[in-house]
Design a protein around this nucleic acid. Structure first.
Lengths: 124, 124
DNA sequence: TATTTTAGTTAGTTTTATCTAATTATTGTT
DNA sequence: AACAATAATTAGATAAAACTAACTAAAATA
């Protein structure tokens, strides 16, 4: 199977939600991703055990330094790829869906090459 | 979870091998992908049931029209994406690995937009 | 205060795609 | 002919990531 696509998605979602909401809870993640609360609960337990998040007594979820690093990386990819696809004329909804998948699959090397290329072309 | 990534990979591999070998057998696919024969056997049963391949009495595997359609699509993506990444300066091995993943992720719309873009830039 | 709603957890199920181990059948070798 | 190697299959195991159902605990409300 694939790497940590599922975990990466959760971390990215926590980051995205934290930009919009004052606090992020399991329920918020479940609503955002369209998953059941139980699925998110198990996933959060897993992320907690791997020191990717911390959870307060009130159930507020925060990214650790390690978790933030991954979330930032995936989110950067998400934004760059989706914006590029939209610029190429792809429907916004489709572009976002595709970015959500591609963002997990590129190596660091390929992504930075694409990034350099896209930014170069855009600025010029 | 993901779509039919596994099936798509098998179909693509059958196509690639058929360009190099006179006949394609389960063992060849197992060797190519680094899977166990048993895994391939089960996967081939599945593809047969979905009318993606036919298998002769000798164990020779051929793509059906439906199977070929998918294999062609994925293989085209594979080649275009990997060549593009290599052109951007990505190491060949890495580019091939990444293409192998990304090729399953793109919608028809996004891929054709990227294709048009890359081919346009290349020709110009 | 009693009841309902909301949030989170746990246990057990399902699906997918791999694996190992054991079996069969065919082919090749001595 | 006997034995070894190769190919394919089957049954059962494992792991990941979702699910349902049932439960607890806390908060909101009538």
């Amino acid at each position: 199977m694939r790497n940590n696509e599922s975990s990466e998605d959760y971390l990215e979602t926590i980051l995205m939600l934290s930009e919009v909401k004052p606090v992020v809870r399991s329920v918020d993640i479940a609503n955002e991703l369209g998953y059941k609360k139980s699925s998110v609960s198990v996933a959060m337990k897993n992320l907690r055990e791997r020191n990717m998040i911390t959870v307060t007594d009130e159930g507020y979820i925060y990214l650790t330094e390690d978790g933030k690093k991954i979330a930032d990386m995936i989110y950067e990819r998400h934004k760059l790829i989706s914006e590029w696809l939209i610029k190429l004329g792809v429907d916004k909804k489709v572009a976002l869906e595709d970015a959500c998948k591609v963002e997990h699959d590129l190596s660091e090397e390929s992504f930075s090459a694409i990034k350099k290329y896209i930014l170069g072309k855009t600025k010029a």
